[in-house]
Design a protein around this nucleic acid. Structure first.
Lengths: 182, 182
DNA sequence: AATAATTAAGTAAGTACTCACATATATTAC
DNA sequence: GTAATATATGTGAGTACTTACTTAATTATT
């Protein structure tokens, strides 16, 4: 039986493999998760993983590619916002818009930055530009530095949320918005 | 031949094992580094690792315990500072005080937070308290939130430095210090 | 009937760790 | 001071298991 995911036709078992792999990679780490473990969790044979995804790395690549739109959909709303104050406000509250369903995907993103040293600097470039422009329009002295600060905040807050930190993330977002008089 | 490291007598080969393991764990990750690889890098037999450290986890534990004072020595200077403005300034510039020699250790700390989900919330508690007190003394409305913001900044900046990010960390620290009129 | 999806046994290599033995160093007896 | 003995340090082959991946056969779908 086939399913359509992100306009891609895949079998039900492919879907299950991806879901299981995402969950286990996010929870335990890429290297610490064996393909045998993924197969068992997905209730398929280990061979099927290699039939569909080529190798373990291909499996990870598929997960990340399928999740690409999650990143884009968070960013596009901010980048396309014309009102500079709204750009900043939306950026500050960006992490609050992460769907709990997608926590595993985001957690994996953070994990991979350290485990596989995948850099995401480039992905954030449009957001950095949008923020710089916003601060510039609002007449801030050093718009690029302000933008970098917001990016650091987003990274830290996102990190805290996904780690299940004690920090009251929502409170922090409101507080920062207030500091920028938004 | 024996050496004294942190008041602990250990053989030259123990020292080499620890150095090699630290470097490889920091660079490639704990799970992605085999004990055979550590042994080869240290120019010792694999059996010697288990002779001295019990098991792979024991090796990691030794590295972290020996590095404990690096964390404390960064924090104690800030926590013991009486002048509230100086507390904040020192906290902002804390990451600049990390010795390049110790980058591997700090990088491993960050990596482990994600790879093994080791939480360091507790370690930062004294710093958070010191910052809260400082902002309180300076009459800030919400000292705890301000303290949390600085902690997020430290985390983000430290992370950027250790990842070799393009960000001008020093410039960012100066900028934030300026925002807090320090 | 052809093709696709799936399985499970198998493969080669890698893994953490053990262990019997070798070597180096320290201690003790004379 | 030296030899014998005890202890510590170190080695590398071996072990049991795990790993990513392959493959021939089976089952399901078209």
């Amino acid at each position: 039986m086939q399913v359509i995911t992100h306009s891609i036709i895949m079998t039900e078992k492919q879907e299950k493999i991806l879901q299981s792999a995402l969950g286990l990679f996010a929870k335990e780490g890429y290297h610490a998760t064996s393909t045998n473990k993924v197969a068992k969790h997905a209730c398929v044979s280990e061979g099927l993983i290699f039939r569909h995804f080529g190798n373990k790395e291909g499996l990870l690549t598929s997960i990340l590619e399928l999740g690409e739109n999650k990143i884009k959909s968070l960013l596009v709303d901010i980048v396309m916002e014309p009102d500079p104050k709204e750009v900043i406000r939306k950026a500050i509250f960006m992490s609050a818009r992460i769907d709990k369903i997608d926590y595993d995907f985001w957690k994996l993103q953070f994990k991979l930055k350290w485990e596989l040293e995948v850099s995401s600097d480039k992905k954030m470039e449009p957001l950095k530009m949008a923020l710089s422009n916003a601060f510039n329009k609002l007449g801030y002295e050093e718009p690029e530095q302000e933008a970098m600060l917001i990016l650091l905040f987003i990274e830290g807050i996102g990190s805290a949320i996904l780690k299940g930190s004690n920090m009251d993330a929502n409170q922090m977002m409101k507080f920062l918005a207030k500091k920028y008089k938004i």
